[in-house]
Amino acid sequence: MDERQPEPPSEWRYTLRVPYDPLAPAIARSVLARHALPELADIAVLLTSELLTNAWCHAPGPASLSLKWADKRLRASVWDAGLLPPHPTGCPEPYAEGGRGLALVELCADAWGSFAIGPAQGKVVWFELLPDASGRVAA
């Protein structure tokens, strides 16, 4: 009997619908930690958690997470029902409880952005990570 693990596919995609629940980022972190590439897992988990936390804090209703590995890059996208585009807040006060999420995304991702989905249908915030990106800040 051959007990070798099968080779992972060269491309994959997962979509996870998450409820409007403060536990959603933790669930997504668990899923991502098991499916991301080892060299990207820590940063991908951190940034995905930040985007889902923002969706929970700033948008009404559920959200969804899409994780895609293709063209040697990991892309995470979070859809939520919020209509306001995200914006980094700069440097928060040292003991502030929030305000660092998008700054982390901006600092650690190889690319990131957002776009609106039709009139009053929410938005998507996304980031991309490349496995061999030099100059990226480690998580």
Results as ranks from 00 to 15, higher is better:
I43N: 14
S114I: 01
V125P: 05
W112P: 00
P38Q: 11
A111V: 00
P9Y: 03
L84V: 09
R73V: 07
R4L: 11
G82T: 02
V105W: 01
L47Y: 04
A133P: 06
L74A: 03
S10R: 14
D132P: 02
Y14T: 10
R34V: 03
T53D: 03
W126E: 01
A59N: 07
R136Y: 03
V78M: 03
G61I: 10
L83Q: 15
P19Q: 08
L46T: 05
E7H: 03
L130R: 15
W126V: 01
G61N: 10
W69N: 08
G101I: 13
Y95V: 11
L37K: 13
V105H: 03
W79E: 01
V78W: 06
S134H: 11
L130Y: 13
L32G: 02
E93K: 09
A55K: 05
A59V: 06
V125E: 11
G82E: 03
Q5W: 07
V31N: 00
F127P: 06
S49Y: 04
G135D: 09
K72Q: 15
P8I: 11
C108G: 01
A111I: 00
V137R: 14
A36R: 09
T53W: 12
A96G: 08
E11M: 13
L16T: 04
A28R: 00
Q121Y: 04
A111W: 00
H35S: 10
H35N: 15
Y20N: 15
A36K: 08
P8F: 05
Y14V: 14
A63G: 14
L46Q: 05
E93Q: 10
P9V: 05
Q5M: 09
P19L: 09
R136P: 02
E106G: 11
G135M: 07
L102Q: 09
P25C: 00
A33S: 13
G82I: 02
L104G: 00
T15D: 09
L107E: 12
L23Y: 14
E11P: 02
A139G: 00
H58L: 10
L52C: 06
S30Y: 11
L129K: 10
A120F: 10
A63N: 04
V18M: 08
D132Y: 08
V18N: 01
P86T: 06
G61W: 06
L130T: 10
A55E: 04
N54E: 07
A109D: 05
F115W: 14
A76V: 15
L23G: 13
V78D: 02
G122T: 05
